[in-house]
Design a protein around this nucleic acid. Structure first.
Length: 160
DNA sequence: GCCAACGTTGGC
DNA sequence: GCCAACGTTGGC
């Protein structure tokens, strides 16, 4: 089974990597995703143990701040049935759930943030989906060599 | 705050 | 099924 790697975006104002570190067992259901492509990744391709870069969007600067991992098999997103939730989906039925999710667990915070600017200016990393103009997908597959490189850049800089 | 990108909705 | 209008994302 080949290693699989991913990147997830989150606005730190709604849910930051620090929030994930502070969650019970450093784990949280990655709920509220309401995009079919992103759902399909969670439902069909993300599996326990996959590595995940945690990216802060809408931050100044935006960038990768943490390493996480997939911590569950896919299951129905409970918020779709919760009328009080902003993610409530009246068109989804419990016997035929529309939205699936996986749990995410924090592995560790990066030694230093790897910013979007750095990603874009790096000859290899600039091909990452997150660096594409107009890229809005909140969950994207990442070449594991790119994930490794992001971690390496973060480590290297932190040691001066 | 601006605006490009792009997914979704709804009229036809 | 087409497509214009609209809403959201997210970098800058």
């Amino acid at each position: 089974m080949p290693r699989r790697c991913w990147l997830v975006k989150s606005e730190p104002g709604s849910f930051s990597f620090a929030d994930l570190l502070a969650a019970p067992a450093r784990t949280t259901p990655w709920d509220g995703v309401r995009n079919y492509q992103a759902r399909n990744f969670m439902r069909d391709e993300m599996r326990v143990g996959d590595a995940v870069l945690f990216y802060h969007s809408g931050a100044t600067p935006p960038g990768v701040v943490g390493l996480a991992e997939v911590a569950s098999e896919p299951y129905p997103d409970p918020t779709q049935f919760d009328e009080g939730s902003r993610y409530f989906d009246p068109k989804s039925r419990p016997d035929e759930p529309r939205w699936q999710l996986i749990d995410l667990r924090a592995v560790r915070e990066l030694a230093s943030m790897v910013t979007m600017g750095e990603i874009k200016s790096h000859p290899e990393l600039r091909t990452m989906e997150v660096a594409r103009r107009g890229s809005r997908l909140s969950i994207t597959p990442v070449d594991c060599a790119h994930l490794d490189l992001v971690l390496e850049i973060s480590e290297r800089r932190s040691h001066g």
